[in-house]
Amino acid sequence: MRRFGRTMVTAALGLAVVGGTAGWASGDDRQTAVTGPPPGTTAWRADTASGRALPDPAGATPREVARFFAGLDEAARGELVRSHPLVVGNLDGAPLPLRYEANRIAVAATGEARYASLAAPDRRILAFDPRGRGQVAEVFGDLEHAEHVSVIVPGSDNDATAYDAARKPATGPAGMAGALRSVAGGSTAVIAWVGYTTPVGVGLDAAGGRLAEAGAVRLARFTQGLDAVGAPDPVLFCHSYGSVVCGLAARHTDATDIVAFGSPGMRAGTAAALRTGARVWAARGPSDWIADIPNVEFAGLGHGADPTSAAFGARRVPAADVRGHTGYFAAGSQSLAAFAAIAKGDVR
């Protein structure tokens, strides 16, 4: 019994360093998850358009939002963008061009140098929320006319403040999205989705499911918003702690495929337990430190079974040449080629 106790304590301590892109580092900074409707909602609720009440960001479904905007003329749409950019820019179901324009206005209005690059006219910023550490989503490619759509769901240490920070090539949400888009081709749009509050470092937040649960709600609604504007059902590429988010959101999305890579677990014992119609894939490189994390759940810590294990039942993605925890999208890698094939629907 004493040996069992020591084993469980060791496992719990190991789980306290599970997480995202920072490697083996401590992280005790507990984060407050940004949830609920976007900033500016109170003023939005008090306004009207063409004599009609505006859809409540907290209660209206993305399809209801899409129907509302379809009933407005161009002038009324433009007025809402100018008057309520933070709401329109984050409103799932709103027309894509309006969201891009609204977010350019919202980013510029912050007056913060750390966000200035996001307002460049050639960027398609699909969401921007400056609360907390900030959240952002960016489209690579033409989402309005895409035949295939992929969404990158990142892990720890990702937020709007660090989104445009210098990184190694093909790492970070934007680097991963850009790399996938370049290989998958012009008919594929890829979204870098930093749409939830991620853990900082690799402490208790990364070992627990609290932030992932909040993120899963936001991811599910985001995919519903894509559906509401007529985008194809997406492929979710879920890195590290992002795979925990995807695991919890799986049954609430219409994803065709869910790809977990560098994953500490998906809060499910098997792929079937995710209760999704999507095909589930998993990849882990030979030098990824995530392999050293115990795949258990104990006292609320840990994320369960290893998605790359045979018992989990996911389809395996080749990753023998992947280096480290963030090298899955490296140019010429087996994993990037496989990811592109999945993104384009070329794998049966």
Score class of each variant (00 low, 15 high):
residue 7 T to W: 11
residue 21 T to V: 15
residue 22 A to I: 11
residue 23 G to T: 12
residue 25 A to E: 13
residue 25 A to W: 05
residue 29 D to H: 09
residue 32 T to S: 10
residue 34 V to C: 02
residue 34 V to D: 03
residue 43 A to I: 04
residue 46 A to F: 01
residue 48 T to G: 00
residue 49 A to R: 02
residue 53 A to Y: 01
residue 56 D to R: 07
residue 58 A to E: 14
residue 65 V to C: 04
residue 65 V to T: 14
residue 66 A to F: 05
residue 66 A to W: 03
residue 67 R to Q: 13
residue 70 A to F: 01
residue 71 G to V: 08
residue 74 E to C: 00
residue 76 A to D: 13
residue 77 R to V: 14
residue 78 G to M: 03
residue 86 L to Y: 14
residue 91 L to V: 09
residue 91 L to K: 06
residue 91 L to Y: 07
residue 93 G to D: 06
residue 94 A to P: 09
residue 97 P to Y: 09
residue 104 R to C: 08
residue 105 I to C: 03
residue 108 A to I: 07
residue 109 A to R: 15
residue 109 A to L: 11
residue 110 T to I: 05
residue 112 E to K: 15
residue 113 A to G: 00
residue 114 R to C: 10
residue 117 S to G: 15
residue 118 L to H: 01
residue 118 L to C: 02
residue 118 L to Y: 04
residue 118 L to R: 00
residue 119 A to C: 11
residue 122 D to S: 13
residue 125 I to K: 03
residue 131 R to H: 10
residue 137 A to E: 01
residue 138 E to W: 03
residue 138 E to P: 02
residue 140 F to Q: 11
residue 140 F to R: 10
residue 141 G to W: 02
residue 143 L to I: 15
residue 143 L to Y: 08
residue 144 E to I: 11
residue 146 A to H: 01
residue 148 H to Q: 14
residue 149 V to F: 00
residue 150 S to C: 14
residue 151 V to Q: 04
residue 158 N to R: 06
residue 159 D to R: 08
residue 159 D to Q: 03
residue 161 T to D: 12
residue 162 A to D: 05
residue 168 K to P: 00
residue 169 P to C: 06
residue 171 T to W: 04
residue 172 G to T: 07
residue 179 A to E: 01
residue 184 A to W: 13
residue 188 T to M: 08
residue 192 A to W: 03
residue 192 A to Y: 04
residue 194 V to Q: 14
residue 198 T to I: 07
residue 198 T to D: 07
residue 198 T to S: 14
residue 202 V to I: 03
residue 202 V to K: 02
residue 203 G to I: 08
residue 210 R to E: 14
residue 211 L to R: 01
residue 214 A to C: 08
residue 215 G to Q: 09
residue 216 A to W: 09
residue 216 A to K: 05
residue 217 V to F: 04
residue 219 L to Y: 02
residue 221 R to F: 03
residue 224 Q to W: 04
residue 225 G to F: 08
residue 228 A to L: 10
residue 230 G to Q: 06
residue 230 G to F: 09
residue 232 P to C: 10
residue 235 V to S: 14
residue 237 F to M: 15
residue 240 S to Y: 04
residue 242 G to Y: 03
residue 246 C to Y: 02
residue 248 L to C: 00
residue 255 A to K: 13
residue 256 T to V: 15
residue 259 V to G: 03
residue 261 F to A: 01
residue 262 G to I: 03
residue 262 G to V: 03
residue 264 P to W: 09
residue 267 R to F: 04
residue 267 R to I: 01
residue 273 A to E: 15
residue 277 G to K: 11
residue 278 A to M: 09
residue 282 A to S: 14
residue 287 S to V: 13
residue 289 W to Q: 10
residue 290 I to D: 02
residue 293 I to M: 11
residue 294 P to S: 07
residue 296 V to C: 00
residue 301 L to T: 05
residue 304 G to N: 05
residue 306 D to L: 05
residue 307 P to E: 08
residue 310 A to Y: 00
residue 310 A to V: 12
residue 312 F to I: 11
residue 314 A to T: 09
residue 318 P to I: 12
residue 319 A to M: 08
residue 323 R to F: 03
residue 325 H to A: 13
residue 327 G to I: 06
residue 332 G to I: 12
residue 334 Q to I: 01
residue 335 S to E: 06
residue 340 A to V: 10
residue 342 I to K: 10
residue 344 K to Q: 15
residue 345 G to R: 12
residue 345 G to S: 12
residue 347 V to L: 14
residue 348 R to K: 11
residue 348 R to G: 15
